[in-house]
Amino acid sequence: MYSLAIIAEAVVNGLMTGAAYALVALGLTLVYGVLHIVNFAHGALLTCAMFAVLGMEQLLGIGPYAAILPLALLFYGLGYGLQRFVIGPSSHGEDRNTLLVTLGLSIILENALLAAFRSDTRSLGGEMGFDVVELGPMLLSRPRLVGCAVALLVAALLWLLLARTDTGRAIRAVAKERFGAQLSGIDPRHIFAVTFGIGCACLAVAACLLLPTFYVNPRVGNAFVLVAFTIVVLGGMGSVTGALLGGLIVGVVESLGGLLLGESLGQLGIFLIFILVLLFRPTGLFGARA
C-alpha cells in the first residue's frame, strides 16, 4: 500500500493545484451568478491568457508574476468588450443563445490559436518550475505555493469587491433583480460587461500563476474548462466560497485519483463527481435551493 507520507504529499499537491483551479472557477461562477449563463468560452479565454503570459515573457522579458497586473487589466478590457459588443447583442437576451454564442467564441479562439501557434506544446522554461520548498518530510513546489497564496488573496479581494464597493452592490443587485436594478438607475448591460470583464481578469491572474508549472498548447483550456464547470457545480453556481472549496476538493480528488488509478483514469473521477452532483444535488454543496 501507499505510505502515509506519499498520500499526504498527494493531498497537499492536490490542494495547491486546486487553488489554481478555484481561481479559474471563480471567474466562471461570478459570470454564472450574475448573468445566469454558462460561459463556454472560459477555457479558450484561459488558453489565450496563458499564451499572453508566454508572450510577455518571451517578447518583453516580463516574468509571470510581474505580468499579473497588466494582464488582469488587459483581460478585463477584453472581457468587457466581448460581453458588451459580441455576446450581449447577439444573444437577444435568451440564455440558450448565450450558451451557443460562447460555444462559437470558444471554437473561434481555440482554432485561431491553433492557426497562429500550431499544436506545439510550450512552456516558460527556466528553473522556476523546479524550485522547491522543504516542509517537514514534504518537498513542495514554490510556484505552486505562491499560486495558492495569490489565489486565496484574489478570492478575498473578489469577496470584498462584491460585499463592500458600489460596483459590487450593483452587480449583486443585477444578479438578484434585474428590472429593479434598472429602475434604480443601474445599466444592466454595463454591469453584465463589468462582471464578464472581472471573470476574464480572474483568468489572467490564474494564467500567470499556472504558467511556471504548466505547459501551454492551443487546447489546454479544454482540460480546465470541464474541471472548472465541475467545481462551479460542486460549489453551487454563483457562490464565491463554494468555488474556492470546490476547487480544493477537486484538486485533491484528482491528485489522489491520479495516484491510485493512473493519470488517464484519474480524470474520470472529476467527470463522475460532476455527473453525480448534477444529477443528485444540482444546487451544489453550498448553493442555496434554486
Binding site: G104, S106, A115
Partner: peptide, 19 residues
C-alpha cells in the same frame, strides 16, 4: 496552410446564425 481555419469559420457562422 492555416490549421483549423474551417472550424474557426464554423464558430463565426454559429454566432452569426444565432445573432
Amino acid at each position: 496552410w492555416m490549421t483549423g481555419v474551417d472550424l474557426m469559420l464554423f464558430g463565426v457562422i454559429l454566432i452569426a446564425a444565432v445573432a
